[in-house]
Design a protein around this nucleic acid. Structure first.
Lengths: 138, 138
DNA sequence: CAAGTAACTTCCTAAAAGTAAGTAGATGCC
DNA sequence: GGCATCTACTTACTTTTAGGAAGTTACTTG
């Protein structure tokens, strides 16, 4: 099908877990546009709590993906920026952006046979799931 | 810096949220290797609970990224496979794999001035964080 | 010196994820 | 025929993680 992405190895799992934590993707995406301060990140992300932002930033720093710089110019500000390791995510986000442009949120697929009106209840949700083996064998 | 990924738009957020849920990345990555049944997924993912796997699969199905097929050949099995929308994630995972190969889990960066032995405590953790503005002005 | 700001942290509640056991249909074994 | 087994989930309950709001520290400004 597409044969150059086989290794479901530990490294990949690490990467997937990193991106699999809520907000990390958006944080990295914003930092790819350039360094950003705490408050600025809070605003630009929109919806994240300061508690969690602080947590995520510390995690990302511990993982060596971002760095924290304190600029002591009298107004004193701290800012977060990507390390080389973080910058290397660029391509991932580029491809994710491409995917998003083509597929995100628009109608499920070019050949939808289910009506794309209501997203949930893709199969009764309640009834047909626990007992899907309806076949009475004949 | 790299200028073709500006739109931090809604579509991108959708995509980031999709990948930002725990396990979705790994699930999609496995399905990129081909269709898979429930139990098989449980095993190959390793560590996910059936409750959450079931939940994730339903979410992904509702988002049109995967499809569920029930094969009623007497041993009866259901299998999950990517839709076209899901297949389109291939490039994202390819890049993520590349990143992982080069950066994941190996030493933080080519220029570490902090000893790379212990990951946590990147700055005392407790003491220096709440009061980072140490400058006595003069 | 009171008020304001930036960057966090602490506390307390709400929403996910983990654990384990249960359900439902179809066999297989004796 | 009855019981154990398998697959694919669901339900009930606990733990972890996220959210909301207010507090803290070091300054700056009026």
């Amino acid at each position: 099908m597409h044969d150059d992405l086989r290794p479901l190895c530990e490294r990949f799992l690490t990467a997937a877990e990193l991106l699999g934590r809520r907000w990390t993707g958006i944080i990295l995406r914003i930092l790819l546009d350039g360094p950003c301060r705490f408050g600025e990140l809070t605003e630009r992300i929109g919806g994240i709590s300061e508690r969690v932002l602080s947590e995520r930033l510390k995690e990302l720093e511990a993982e060596g993906v971002i760095e924290r710089h304190v600029d002591p110019g009298p107004p004193i500000r701290s800012e977060y920026r990507l390390t080389e390791k973080g910058q290397a995510f660029w391509k991932v986000f580029h491809e994710l952006g491409q995917w998003a442009e083509q597929w995100a949120d628009v109608k499920p697929a070019p050949k939808p046979d289910v009506k794309p009106a209501a997203k949930p209840a893709s199969r009764d949700a309640k009834s047909a799931r626990a007992a899907p083996r309806k076949r009475k064998t004949a």
